[in-house]
Amino acid sequence: MTVDWSARLHVVTGKGGTGKTSVAASLALALARDGNRTLLVEVEGRQGIAQLFGLDPLPYEERRIATAPGGGEVRALAVDAEAALLEYLDMFYKLGAAGRALRKVGAIDFATTIAPGLRDVLLTGKAKEATTRSVNGRRAYHAVVVDAPPTGRIGRFLNVTAETARLAKMGPIKTQSDGVAALLRSPITSVHVVTLLEEMPVQETLDAIMELEQLGIPVGNVIVNNARPPLLAGGRPTQAELRRGLAAAGLPTDRATVAGLHAEAKGYLARRELEDSLRAELAELDRPLIELPQLPGGITRHGLDVLADTLLR
């Protein structure tokens, strides 16, 4: 299957620790090439984007955090449910000072606490608003990329109608969540799952994709992060062979070094075998599979560009 980035709202999920924030960021950079503008959205208040780009904590405000080749730019937004609710109320009810009063008595904290579904509607609602916003008859953003909650919570996060329908059977919240639900089930949206070639992340990837399919939410690409280059295609070398090779390279050939390298090669191949079987499980999903290389220098801006290149390839 071929990799497809034609959606306008990209939701990036994955088990915690798989690097979904850096994948989301590199996707936003990739889609900003050719002079486009993209928005990278964070919804969990972790300030992961700021940390990734080495910036001060992001406010609830869209601001440029990076430029891309061809005059493109990436803006970032850390959505805060409370601020989103106030903005929303203001838009529809012209609240002004009353809104601030609501915040003061703790009403907003209260509302988003007692009805966590409400919180998710506000967060996804903001992503919808940015995705569909137009400025002077043109789309404000070529694409919106959401650094979403992890696989364990993604179904609930995106299944906004069900969560709010339990609580609000009519009224503006219901209308709002219906609108968000429709967008999330349309081809405008695509949910991408980031995984590592490790057991738990792969299992959670399979589970999350099944859940999203059942919810009717479009699943896009599966992204294997931190993939290691395939080495030792010829199988495990003998110690004698390593000794000859080390001698030819002018390196020490003492027993400890030879045995050490031999053990490391063995460990690598064992790991590799496990990775291959996990890769095969992912292939059975019959979804586009992208492998992002391990970045030797850690995650830097250059590293993100390397990942962006790979995503577009």
Binding site: R228, P229, L231, L232, G234, P237, E241, L242, R244, G245, L246, A248, A249, G260, L261, H262, E264, A265, Y268, Q294, P296
Partner: peptide, 19 residues
């Protein structure tokens, strides 16, 4: 070693070790 074309297995083992 890779340039000399000798012992590709050692080349890989050294890369694994470096990583």
């Amino acid at each position: 070693l890779a340039e000399s074309g000798e012992s590709p297995a050692t080349v890989d083992a050294l890369r694994i070790h470096a990583a």
